[in-house]
Design a protein around this nucleic acid. Structure first.
Lengths: 289, 289
DNA sequence: GTTCCGCATGAATCGATAG
DNA sequence: ACTATCGATTCATGCGGAA
């Protein structure tokens, strides 16, 4: 009965191929068709984080909490689709928790292939100092697939070398060079001539992006560039992107901008409303010029 | 008897506080004193890598192969010492292997604390393209400790502050002063004066370092800057640094340069000889100027 | 219009204190 | 002893208003 009440909640759908749902994704996903999603990109609530809003899943219960959801995700994902999971274990009592790596093992047992682990290097991580720990400035982006063969469009995320080197060199400061330990010609000095000759280069599995923590009216967990990159890499226009933990809707917003169908599910009304606002706000931007 | 023959091998020791051994570290470590090592920094042979040299430990046997060695490491490490393990699982058959994360769980079971996972971002990794995978440009640097309290000298690895401060922190904002007693906040607080004209900040747990592309006669697995950084962070001058999988001796070379006692063990004569040469070569550099 | 500067705040972590 | 809350610590970024 609890489930009924959850399913019996509002949803928003418009002509722009957007669907957002208010409720528990575990319930909503059951109504989704098999093999209907091209890309799942999501950042679930981390263990013991956002206790005030999401209720704080305990680390020791995290795997058991997640598996019923990922079982549905496995069902709705297309055979050549991809599941990207953004997550990071916290440190507590001087030690890193193991629930994330236990989740990887559990997901494999459930039938997922653990294809790759990308690193999101957050340039502006939270400050702080502790006696036995440096600042944590990276998160995991775990890639899972249903099969060994899947859709991937590496050309679409190629970096234009010329532009990159230009802007990079312009913005590059002396301190940046020092900080990067670029002692032995790893980069910016002498090899420039080679880059000018080449046009595009394939990227790697480390992403450097700042978090968005400014004073906008919506505060997203990850920057738009993050889902954008994976949407480019794993989908075509017209494909369907799902975020079962939508939050303020960044994944859906970006999907919409990129002419993909975006589906989002969010359990908290505040976030759901925020996402709806953002999507309508985008209408103004799209049609108001 | 096989072990006997291994122990019965040459070793090299000189006045500069260097010890390097030719043989199996599992055997040699048994002769080491309890609680005698301040830092263990090593990059063991990865599963199925370097088959021709190390005999290729199969991924499924990796944990069982490593545990007897790490048991000795746990014994010889000082209570306030640190163990840094540089490792990365390979991709096989379209999937990342799980032996590294299984090793983390097994080492915790063995009594190690899994304190932290640093990321080594290899900036100049080889170009290339694979059908289902981008270039892999990062490796894990797993930190394990015997206790929650351990030696750490963060001041010694501080980096130049980002350029933002040059323009931003000329004069302090009013809120930064107010934030002092604000209950909502992680304020800059009382020590704001420290920030004026601040040159250096504490680093984070992502390291950007180029691999050393080998125009030298030894091809090291990691650049000297890598052990250097951890030696700075976790040891004082005069401390003892151990690399049980010495390879061409980078860890020992750097330890020596930094006035730490360096101990290395290597099972392959070619690498052992290479390390010995490097260490002697360093004599020329040290005394020849 | 650019550039400069004020300002808020972000999946943080630990130790101490309180219940 | 074990958990909940609070205070202290510290970078980097985007936005918005001012010069």
């Amino acid at each position: 009965m609890k489930e009924k009440s959850k399913i019996n909640s509002k949803s928003h759908n418009n002509s722009r191929n957007i669907e957002i749902y208010l409720g528990d994704c575990k319930d909503f996903l059951k109504s989704f068709d098999n093999d209907s999603i091209d890309l799942i990109f999501t950042s679930p609530p981390y263990a013991d984080r956002r206790n005030s809003t999401y209720g704080g899943i305990k680390p020791e219960n995290y795997v058991n909490w997640f598996l019923p959801i990922s079982e549905e995700l496995l069902r709705v994902l297309k055979p050549d689709g991809t599941f990207i999971l953004n997550i990071k274990e916290k440190a507590e009592n001087g030690e890193r928790h193991t629930y994330v790596i236990e989740l990887i093992l559990a997901l494999r047992k459930q039938g997922w292939f653990w294809t790759e682990e990308f690193i999101w290097h957050k340039k502006n991580s939270y400050p702080g100092k502790w006696p036995n720990r440096l600042r944590d400035t990276w998160e995991r982006l775990l890639q899972f697939n249903k099969n060994k063969k899947f859709k991937m469009f590496q050309e679409s995320v190629m970096v234009p070398v010329g532009d990159w080197s230009k802007t990079r060199l312009k913005n590059l400061s002396q301190t940046d060079k020092i900080r990067d330990n670029a002692k032995n010609g790893s980069g910016f000095g002498k090899n420039i001539s080679h880059w000018v000759a080449r046009e595009m280069v394939y990227p790697a599995n480390v992403l450097h992006m700042a978090t968005e923590c400014g004073n906008k009216n919506h505060s997203a967990v990850f920057p738009e560039a993050l889902p954008e990159w994976f949407i480019k890499l794993f989908t075509n226009e017209g494909d369907t992107v799902l975020d079962p933990f939508m939050g303020s809707g960044t994944t859906v917003v970006v999907s919409n901008k990129m002419n993909r169908k975006g589906i989002g599910i969010e359990i908290l009304p505040e976030y759901y409303d925020l996402a709806k606002e953002r999507l309508n706000l985008d209408d103004i931007y799209l049609f108001g010029t």
